[in-house]
Design a protein around this nucleic acid. Structure first.
Lengths: 211, 211
DNA sequence: TATTTTCTGGATTGTCAACTCCATTTTTGC
DNA sequence: GCAAAAATGGAGTTGACAATCCAGAAAATA
């Protein structure tokens, strides 16, 4: 049963020492690394403890249970993924920028040797049905991502670089879709070809709306 | 340790009574249903036993361990997924056929209320790293799928319905990519919009190569 | 029919992983 | 400097779940 203190800790995040903050970060990062490599189910909290070099009581001092840790991981990965795509992502307002962004993504996936998929997307299958809260956090993560892409396309549209019959919002969603599918297939096939094919098809399609 | 009898059973699939075959099927179908809904990790063999109405000894009579059951599930889902898209999938050799196929997929995902993703794709994140054998079965499943799509596009190409500068193989891969990404996003967002946006973008792109 | 093989029931075991407890040390705020 | 709060160590508990075992029923085969 949850005491009201636990509730406070969960909802209002009681004070953390800078040392405590550091420990918490170490835990989240370790968990994020392990989970994006093996998935949630195959990552035990003991594994996380070992990698983060913390004891059980430390981990449960900062997170009430594994679910809460997973939620923290989602938040952490959201930030990490969006950050990794800067400064391109926030300025996707030209065909050149889109192309550079595409190249960056391919580069990132190449560097990790296609051993993982999207740090966010790969979690979808492991929570969707069971944890409503985690799912909605994933949704908002994707929404942020989509919004960044969408913003750039809208700017191009407003500047008249995309013809009026184009639909920037749909195109942004299609790009994110190709990205997710591409990462998934590239992970399982251990090659970037699907990612490249998916992104390039949608990018070509976007270019077809050039004025 | 594996006895040579177990080895025989695994490799050559000893004789199965028709009754035995039925039991085995019940197990695989139950496992497939549960795993595509909750994932592998959250599906216990006990859950499978309950749903399939079999005892533990029955399940382990047909499968040496959970991993083997998972492999059977992959094979089963491969067939189920490809079958569900017939007769469209095997005749994707016209723009109308492509459109009908797209409509069918949206319809399927709508009917399952976006509660699951791709029965195959959603397994990727839960095995990739750990079980090499299962991964390669997933790869060949996707390869079959891609080949079916590719065949249709190549026929169009050879018939001169797609311009010579188009690349049917890439387009097929892009379609599969959009499909996977679309199913993933539609699952987490509980709406078909991403699936539609992804597929429509690639289909429009393919149409742009029409002669 | 006899005998071998396949199939089934269900109790049991062993392992592993999530989570708890309590004592102790460190840090903070007054 | 001194309470109070936060951080840490690590052994211990609990439950779930994969897998086993032994015995017996049904079915195939000769």
């Amino acid at each position: 049963m949850k005491t009201s203190d636990d509730l406070n800790k969960t909802l209002y995040k009681l004070k953390l020492t800078s040392k405590g903050q550091a420990t918490r970060n170490r835990i989240v990062e370790a968990a994020a690394d392990l989970m994006s490599e093996r998935g949630i189910g195959r990552t035990s909290v003991e594994d996380v403890q070992r990698l983060a070099k913390v004891s059980a009581s430390q981990l449960y001092h900062y997170f009430s249970d594994k679910k809460e840790l997973v939620r923290a991981v989602i938040a952490h990965q959201t930030e990490a993924v969006l950050d990794a795509q800067q400064p391109y992502l926030s300025k996707l307002d030209s065909f050149e920028a889109l192309q550079s962004w595409r190249d960056l993504i391919i580069e990132i996936q190449t560097q990790r040797q296609c051993k993982t998929g999207c740090p966010i997307g790969s979690l979808v299958g492991e929570i969707s049905e069971t944890e409503e809260e985690a799912r909605s956090e994933l949704v908002s993560c994707f929404a942020q991502w989509e919004a960044e892409i969408s913003r750039g396309l809208h700017e191009m549209y407003n500047r008249g670089e995309l013809r009026s019959e184009s639909n920037p919002a749909s195109l942004a969603l299609a790009l994110l879709t190709a990205l997710q599918g591409g990462l998934l297939l590239s992970q399982v096939r251990r090659e970037v070809a699907p990612l490249a094919a998916g992104l390039d098809a949608v990018l070509d399609h976007i270019r077809s709306f050039a004025t």
